[in-house]
């Protein structure tokens, strides 16, 4: 199956936009990706081995966090995983109550 790598993580995946792996579950696919490209690991997972909060991984059009079987979800050759860090921000709050923006 194919795993699509976002621009900021390509330097850690031999500059590839798409990596092809052999896997039968989501977890195996990610394992295959990070064993071939170990530098990706620290960008995807926290020290505790948990997927970083701002990293989203989609199996086709579904967030893997919301799949019933999570990383044990079976995958087919024609499926694709997309790694997509979040995009958010905003201006500081003008509130005088000291709430940080």
């Amino acid at each position: 199956m194919k795993i699509h790598i976002p621009t900021p993580l390509r330097p850690y995946a031999d500059k590839q936009a798409t990596v092809t792996v052999e896997a039968s579950t989501v977890g195996q696919a990610l394992e295959a990706l990070t064993s071939t490209h170990p530098e990706l690991k620290k960008h995807l997972y926290s020290d505790g081995g948990k997927l970083r909060a701002f990293v989203n991984i989609y199996l086709n059009d579904e967030d893997i966090r919301y799949l019933a079987a999570k990383e044990a979800t079976p995958v087919k050759e024609s499926d694709s995983l997309t790694i997509i860090p979040s995009i958010a921000g905003g201006r500081p709050s003008i509130s005088p109550r000291g709430k940080r923006g």
């Binding site: 900021p8 860090p85 995009i87 958010a88 921000g89 905003g90 201006r91 500081p92 003008i94 923006g101």
Partner: peptide, 22 residues
């Protein structure tokens, strides 16, 4: 993105929530 009634400078929130290096 836009900053309504606020300067076009990045905020602490913008940096904290930015993850796309490059």
């Amino acid at each position: 993105h836009s900053h309504p009634d606020h300067p076009a400078q990045w905020s602490v929130t913008d940096l904290a929530e930015a993850h796309w290096m490059g």
